[in-house]
Write a protein that binds this DNA or RNA. Structure first.
Lengths: 231, 231
DNA sequence: AGAGCAAGTAACATCGTGATTACAACACCC
DNA sequence: GGGTGTTGTAATCACGATGTTACTTGCTCT
């Protein structure tokens, strides 16, 4: 799985975001360094060879755009921008300057990882051979690239949320996942939604699983703790 | 397991809570310091390198939020918030400020330890997904991730309380655990329940063990002292 | 053997949790 | 801009879990 884990530099001034992102990356097996301003970022980038940069656009001192320009002079590693709000302007500017992708806050942990994986793969051919983009458990296969869920009885038509929810559950198949964890991982960082909302989505997910001819009890409820996808 | 025990600072003005928390942490092998106000907390944090902070939100003087902000300027050690009641507002504010997790009172000892462990693990780079935390004794295995109790005759279906109870007993397999200890460990801090209640749950637990085909006398009663899981 | 106490057992009331439904807000697509 | 599909929240319902009480059983010590 990890011949040499890809090295990633995360640049953001908000600790809550860097914590979240580095937590997500490390959980996924990447090696992540964190700095909270552009100057340090540049210094770190000079000393180490990073495979990917994740930059907030809004930074004290050197902002994300400027930092990206300077990094471009040194390296051709891909750059993923983070932006506080989903303004089209930021996106356009970011991509013009040489950013390779763009993610608006708030974003989910899995969306982040998906982008990161895509960028790393794009850049260096077969960088991550072990990391397949499909999860399979109990006869259901989730294709994260195609965003489809299928099995021997055909596809299950899912909304984005339902897909993320199922992905989180299947990724931890056999283990209980709490509503809080589901909110954090499937809904995203800074989840302001009620944990009760998860219940509703689980219900909808089960309905669709059943409608497609599969066993809705694949999503087990563990009273008092959360939900668990049958292993 | 313990090369160097992680150092934890507990900040709360209620002695009943600090007692409970530090007792729980030390029992688990962590090194815990206790202070009861924000000023002392900051002074301690300046002198020592802590791996984790556990802060009550309601504090005399500097409150938990403010303290967290100041700590963030000094260290990137994770912060676990405690809150009197499960108010959604507290949660949002806490996480925005840079708290890493959130625990509403009243909480159980095992839930506390689980969070602490998760936070400390998160900080130290890689996660080891393969390492499941399971307890095995006398042919029964408790899988804390899956929240299942099983053996060669299949699963034992347990309610949350029964699971916690069995976990406490199995964790001290071969040793007598008093009803008071069981209440504290399985029920949580601020156990206002009768010790007699433990008897009822032991009965129910034994019934379920027997119903699943196992030997209910695995849970032995030690007259005058408490219960003991057969080693 | 019998008193006294500890534990087992059963029954019951209450509470909490999750399932379910309905509805409102919102985004997106034509 | 209208319409459709998606998403979050509130209200309701039903059932299982929990704690307590009362009663029974059984051990222990004199």
């Amino acid at each position: 799985m990890t011949d040499t884990p890809s090295r990633i530099l995360v640049v953001d001034d908000e600790p809550s975001i860097t914590d979240f992102v580095s937590y997500a990356l490390k959980k996924e097996g990447y090696s992540a360094d964190v700095v909270n301003n552009g100057e340090d970022a540049f210094a770190y980038a000079s000393k180490n060879n990073y495979d990917l940069f994740i930059l907030d656009i809004m930074l004290p001192g050197i902002d994300g755009y400027e930092l990206c320009r300077r990094l471009r002079a040194k390296t051709n590693a891909p750059v993923l921008f983070l932006s506080a709000r989903d303004t089209e302007l930021d996106k356009v500017v970011g991509l013009e300057i040489g950013g390779d992708d763009y993610l608006a806050k708030p974003f989910g942990i899995r969306e982040l990882i998906a982008r990161v994986r895509a960028l790393l793969r794009r850049g260096q051919g077969a960088e991550y051979p072990g990391a397949s983009n499909a999860i399979t458990a109990s006869g259901i296969t989730l294709d994260e690239d195609a965003h489809t869920a299928s099995g021997d009885k055909g596809d299950i038509d899912l909304t984005p949320r339902e897909f993320e929810l199922l992905a989180c559950l299947m990724k931890s198949a056999g283990k209980v996942v709490s509503r809080e964890d589901l909110l954090r991982d499937a809904w995203g960082w800074e989840y302001l939604t009620e944990t009760k909302t998860v219940d509703t989505h689980v219900k909808r997910l089960r309905d669709k699983i059943a409608a497609a001819g599969y066993d809705p009890s694949l999503v087990e409820t563990v009273r008092g703790y959360g939900y668990r996808f049958k292993a």
